[in-house]
Amino acid sequence: MITVANRIFVAPEFAEQFEERFRARAGLVDTMPGFVANHVLRPTKLGEPYVFLTFWESHEAFRSWTESDAFKQGHARSGSLPREAFSGPNVLEVHEVVTSSDPRF
């Protein structure tokens, strides 16, 4: 099991629009083999990033998603917010789950 955390820096004045974008997401990732779950985490301090956290059964499952047509379709919507909505570059992190209190992991 792996997690993929995409840390996304959003300008405060665009936070509501950004959150709505994820609420109205296409959901194409939900049907991908090896996909487990995702969570969108809102920062509690000004200037910190949102974290889009996904769980995958394997590195291969995640890689297949990033190479799929569904990935391209789902991310084509990213142009819905202007460039100034993002206050810094995204930071992508991949981690292996070593232990978890959740029995699914």
Rank of each mutant, 00 (worst) to 15 (best):
V4E: 11
I8R: 06
F9P: 00
F9H: 12
A11E: 03
E13R: 13
E13N: 14
F14C: 12
A15G: 07
Q17E: 13
Q17D: 13
E19R: 01
F22H: 11
R23C: 09
R25N: 02
A26E: 11
G27Q: 05
L28A: 07
L28T: 03
T31C: 13
P33Y: 02
P33L: 01
F35S: 05
P43H: 04
P43F: 04
T44G: 12
K45M: 10
K45Y: 10
K45T: 13
L46T: 15
L46G: 06
G47T: 07
P49H: 01
Y50H: 07
L53N: 05
E57F: 03
S58H: 06
S68F: 02
A70H: 10
F71N: 13
G74S: 02
S78K: 09
S78E: 10
G79W: 00
P82V: 01
R83S: 11
A85F: 09
A85R: 07
F86Q: 06
S87I: 08
G88I: 03
V91R: 15
E93W: 00
V94C: 05
V94D: 07
H95K: 12
V97S: 01
V98Y: 11
V98Q: 13
S101V: 15
S101M: 11
D102N: 15
P103S: 03
P103M: 03
